[in-house]
Structures are given as C-alpha cells and as structure tokens.
Amino acid sequence: MFLKQLSIFIENRVGALTDATGILADNGIDMQAFSLADTKDFGVMRIIAGDCEKAASVLRANGYLVNITPVLAVETENRPGAFHEVLMRLSDAGVFVEYCYAFISPNPGKAQFILKVSDDDAAEKALALA
C-alpha cells in the first residue's frame, strides 16, 4: 500500500523542530508515523499525517519547505525475522531501499514499516507475491 509522506526541511537551529511540530499541533494534525533524518547541518522531518494536504498547506503558509512523496507502507507479523523477509523480497527484485522507519501498528500482533524504494512498481510486485 502506498501512503503520502510529508517531508519538511528543518534548519539547523534551536527550536526549528518544535516550531514545526507546534504548527501541526495547533492545526490538529494527527501524526501516524514520524522520522527525523539529520545531518550535521540540517534535518528532514518525515511524517505520515492524518490529513496530509492540510498539514502541507499549513506548513507552507508558515514558510516551510515541504514535499509530498509516495512511500510504501508494509505490515508484517510482529515476530523476529518478519522485516528481514520483506527486505529479502525487495533485494531479490533488485529494489533499493533509500530510507525506512517503523512504527507500532494499531492492529494487535502486527508491525508496520514505511519504505522509500528506488522502484515503486517493482517493490509492489515483489511484496504482493507474499
């Protein structure tokens, strides 16, 4: 399943992240998954929001650079080796994983992953075989 992910550029300064999360909080945006990629000089916050378009528009209105990207959401059994199996399928299909983050699934006994892959179609095909 593909989800819309919101990427937000975060400057390297104290308070930059809380400024962004504050805007989301004030606008009642629910974050279902969250990750922060950081480098020495800046960060990129990635979220799966309840209302992606609204989140993007309120952030843009506040001067943030945002980008909406389709990402692959995968649900697996919450057991050892489950994630490995997913990655093996992608690897066998020659698909690169650019980045990935995990979060707790609302479904009992399940785990969920967000994956940004090099080839969306090939990834979907590889995982559908499951």
Partner: peptide, 18 residues
Amino acid sequence: ELAEGTFTGEVRKLEALR
C-alpha cells in the same frame, strides 16, 4: 536560502547542493 520547489525531501540531494 533554499528556493521553493527544489526541495524533494531527499537528504542526499540537499547534501549534494551544500
């Protein structure tokens, strides 16, 4: 300042730009 519309969300590209 980053220009509007060039941000793709990819760390790699920002690093390359820097």
